[in-house]
Structures are given as C-alpha cells and as structure tokens.
C-alpha cells in the first residue's frame, strides 16, 4: 500500500475513533444527567455522534478495512487512533454501580470537542478525498446543535455560582494538559497535508482557540499539553476499560448475528 493510502486510512481511523469514544462516554451518561430534560437532549447528541462514527467506519469498510462492527469492537487499544482526552472516564465510579460522574467534565469536554470537530469538519469539506468531503458536508449541519448545546451549558455555568465556576475552571485546566494530540494527525501528518486531505492542524488550533476565547473567560495562557499521543496508538487504561465494556457482548461470539 502506498503512503498516501495509509495516511488516508489513518486519518479516517482518527475521525471514527474520536466519535466512537465520545459517544461511548455519552452512552454511559444516559439516565444520569443532572436534569431529566438535559439527559434526553444529551442522548440525541450521543446517538448522532455514534452515527458519525459509523459513517467514518463505513468509509474504512469501503476501502477494504473490514466490517464496521469489527472495526469498532475488535481493534486493540494499540490500533486505536482517538485523542487521549476523549477516552478519559466520566469521573469516578462505574456507570452501572456508582456513577460519580462530573457534569463539569461533560460540559468542558463537550464544548471543547464539538468546537474542535466543527473546525475539523469544515476543513474536511475541502478534502481531496471526495467521499470524506461528502461525509463532512453531511455531518456538519447536524453537528451544529451539539456545539450549541454544550456552549450554552458552558456559558451558563461560567456565569453562575462560585462552586460551578471553580469546577469548570478545574476541568479546563485538566483539558489543557491532556488535549494536545487533538491537533496532531499522527505519523502520516505530512502526507495528509501534502495530499490535501486536511488542513494544517496548527491552523485548526488557531480557529479552535478563537472560538473558545469568545466563550470562555480566562483560558489558560500556556500551550496545550498531552499525557500521551493517542494518534500514535498510545493510550491510558481508561481506554482498555472502555473497550472491554463496549465489546463485552460482541466478544462472546464475534461471528454470531446479534
């Protein structure tokens, strides 16, 4: 396989795995949000996002990478390309036993990720890989609501009680030290840029920061940092646990019809 093709596959895995992990974390939240109406709306966002992951996996399937469910359920952590911050667990505890999940994390991650996804999708609408450009154009209109939802939560909580402001601030600090690999397109980055598959991540980061600055007061002034680089297959144990959960039933018989 030539380098161009490998680079494209890698980019598609990044897009698919990002959305899969975000929607997996969202699915753990289902039924547990601080307000029933907010729970229902959040779940729509989660479902849409998983639908986007399916879309990206399907592009991979069309390129001969295998069935979408194999791609979502069977690949070991080493092969996963999602950014580290997206696999981070929702807080403490297990979703089905003691879900000490933190809404501040949901809001900060939701807002940061959807802002990121928007600038990335806009870039992808001009991708030289036509099916990816078409995919980005289809997802963008639906994704607007996701950003609007988390932005509203972000705005309101920031203007609210000292406790809420502090919780949000802490989660922003945390995000700052764990999300640099969002703006890394992995080992084939140069090929991706040369081939016109996507825009320079530094440019996307500027656009991302500009949007964040319009909403968040006192963004950290230091540069983004990372724990590990998910784009290179480096991951945390949070991902191992997530993969075990999301493939638990599937793995009991990967060839059965479910």
């Amino acid at each position: 396989m030539d380098k161009r093709n490998e680079a494209l596959l890698d980019l598609l895995y990044q897009c698919a795995d990002d959305d899969l992990l975000v929607s997996f974390r969202g699915s753990e939240w289902l039924g547990l949000a601080p307000h029933v109406e907010a729970d229902v709306a959040f779940s729509s966002i989660t479902q849409n996002t998983m639908g986007h992951a399916v879309y990206f996996y399907r592009l991979l399937q069309e390129l001969g990478e295998g069935d979408v469910d194999v791609l979502a359920h069977e690949r070991p952590a080493l092969k996963r390309r999602n950014a580290i911050y997206l696999e981070k667990r929702n807080g403490d505890g297990q979703y089905d036993e003691d879900p000490y999940f933190d809404w501040a994390l949901a809001v900060v991650r939701g807002y940061f990720y959807e802002t990121y996804k928007r600038v990335k999708l806009i870039s992808l609408t001009a991708s030289s890989y036509e099916p990816l450009a078409i995919c980005a154009k289809r997802i963008l209109p639906e994704q607007r609501y996701h950003l609007a939802y988390w932005k509203e939560w972000m705005k309101q909580l920031q203007q609210s009680s000292p406790i809420a402001r502090e919780k949000i601030r802490t989660r922003i600090e945390e995000a700052w030290s764990q999300s640099l690999d969002l703006f890394d397109f992995g080992q084939y980055e140069q090929t991706l840029l040369n081939e016109g598959y996507i825009t320079d991540p530094l440019e996307l980061k500027q656009q991302w920061l500009a949007e964040l600055q319009s909403t968040v007061k006192d963004l950290p002034s230091r540069p983004l940092e990372q724990l590990k680089n998910g784009r290179n297959g480096e991951h945390t144990t949070d991902l191992d646990v997530a993969l075990a959960t999301l493939s638990e039933v599937y793995q009991t018989d990967p060839v059965a019809q479910w």
């Binding site: 307000h35 029933v36 109406e37 907010a38 229902v40 709306a41 779940s43 729509s44 966002i45 609501y145 609007a148 939802y149 509203e152 309101q156």
Partner: peptide, 20 residues
Amino acid sequence: SLLAPNEEMAMILAQENFMR
C-alpha cells in the same frame, strides 16, 4: 411543557425532548 432554569436552556432542550 418542560422544566428548565431559564428560557435559553428551555430552548436548547425543547426540540430533542418533544420532536425527535
């Protein structure tokens, strides 16, 4: 009808609660 702390939040919740 729905419960929300203010009209902006009510707006962002309305569609997905009743018109999915």
